[in-house]
């Protein structure tokens, strides 16, 4: 029931954007900005590039307002655009040029948090190393598998929505997820023992 209400609300906002209501666009932006940037960040693993790509995504949403029809859930349509932008970015090889050093960026982020949360140095090093490993493993997945896992895990999208976003069949999504999680299990399961 909640999902239906959200679906109608987002679609309704987008229809208002189509009619020239800038306020509705701001509402959609406020609601979906975070999930889109986080998805792109996890795909590309560079915050600055992720935000730049997210700008492109919302710009495309705005440009498409005249042709928008609420035939699918708004988030599915939005993530279809986001997936396109991310996969094109990776395909064009811009990914490698922009990618930050995992260790470098991780250390910087952790450094800030050490002061506020004050865990022991050892705990922090373990956490940092775990996080770097998770990021490396996700990054090692083929781009489409990565996109499918990120939408499944973090956006809680079902197979049909992921299929619509990636423009493939539901069985293809099942296969993508199966292979991706198989890789993740093989590479990350040992972390269980490290607490």
């Amino acid at each position: 029931m909640m999902a239906v209400a959200t679906f109608e609300h987002d679609a309704e906002l987008m229809l208002r954007v189509r009619d020239g209501d800038a306020q509705s666009f701001s509402l959609l932006l406020a609601k979906h900005r975070g999930p889109v940037i986080h998805f792109l960040y996890r795909m590309i693993q560079n915050q600055a590039v992720a935000e730049e790509l997210a700008q492109e995504v919302f710009l495309r949403v705005y440009r498409s307002r005249a042709s928008y029809e609420p035939t699918a859930k708004f988030t599915t349509w939005l993530f279809r655009i986001a997936s396109h932008v991310a996969l094109n970015h990776i395909r064009d090889g811009k990914h490698e040029r922009h990618q930050e050093s995992l260790d470098g960026e991780g250390t910087e982020g952790i450094g800030r948090q050490v002061a506020s949360r004050a865990p022991t140095v050892e705990q922090e090093m373990v956490r940092e190393s775990r996080l770097a490993e998770v990021r490396r493993t996700v990054e090692s997945l083929p781009a489409k598998q990565r996109a499918a896992v990120l939408m499944h895990k973090y956006q809680e999208m079902d197979y049909a929505q992921i299929a619509a976003a990636l423009e493939c069949s539901e069985s293809a999504v099942k296969s993508l997820l199966f292979r991706a999680y198989e890789t993740l299990r093989a590479k990350l399961a040992h972390l269980a023992g490290r607490g």
Binding site: L131, E133, V134, V138, L184, R185, L188, A189, L191
Partner: peptide, 9 residues
């Protein structure tokens, strides 16, 4: 375990 590892990101 994979789930928890991803959530720790």
């Amino acid at each position: 375990m994979v789930w928890r590892a991803l959530e720790s990101w």
